[in-house]
């Protein structure tokens, strides 16, 4: 998947805005948005929010977690924890990028928030990398990917699945020739297992 596709999925998450205009509800395939009353907050999909913000027709209220103190705590927790901790939002990186990108004036201390989110992202990426390496080295059968967000999972594609597939190929690559050199006629399945491990 492209990061853009992940972004597209992330744009569906809801966010609170304060519109500066009045409008009847807008009907979309995915659901209705509105009605808009000036300075009455309401929840809309992120993409609507970004769109309105670009036209200067609303103020974006940042999600609860986009707060310096909470993010500091999150970062500390992420640092001290061996596994991944639960992120406040499944698409935190997408939301952060979009909101901070278009509505920097609605959020206090944007620069610091931007930096700290990137730090969290980097910490998680480095954890992800070392656990991938361990998984491959130990030829583990599975790995728990609890609390990984979609963008993070997507960032290890296609490398990890391809590598696992190649390992599988190396492991399972038993050809009929093995049986034939033994001079006996056996089904291919009988040959497997003799070399594995």
């Amino acid at each position: 998947m492209d990061p853009d596709e992940v972004e597209f999925l992330g744009e569906k998450s809801m966010i609170e805005i304060v519109p500066t205009f009045n409008s009847a509800p807008i009907y979309f395939i995915g659901g209705d948005v509105g009605p808009f009353r000036a300075s009455i907050p309401l929840r809309v999909p992120l993409w609507v929010a970004v769109h309105l913000k670009q036209q200067q027709q609303c103020k974006i209220i940042p999600p609860d977690w986009m707060d310096l103190e909470k993010l500091e705590n999150l970062k500390e927790e992420e640092k001290s924890n061996r596994s991944f901790i639960k992120m406040p939002s499944e698409h935190y990186i997408v939301e952060a990028k979009l909101i901070l990108g278009c509505a920097a004036d609605d959020i206090p201390r944007t620069d610091e928030i931007r930096t700290i989110i990137k730090d969290i992202w980097d910490i998680r990426k480095s954890k992800l990398r070392s656990s991938m390496d361990q998984m491959i080295k130990k030829s583990a059968m599975y790995a728990a990917v609890d609390n990984l967000t979609l963008m993070e999972i997507n960032s290890i594609r296609p490398l990890l699945p391809h590598a696992l597939e190649q390992i599988y190929r190396i492991k399972s690559n038993k050809r009929a020739i093995l049986n034939r050199t033994q001079g006996s006629v056996t089904t291919p399945s009988n040959a497997t297992g003799s070399f594995t491990n």
Partner: peptide
Amino acid sequence: DGHNARMKLNTWLLESGIPLKA
């Protein structure tokens, strides 16, 4: 393959006017 995916992600992270950065 890995490199291409990585490059795409990097471009994505940088493409908004104000990139997320350390």
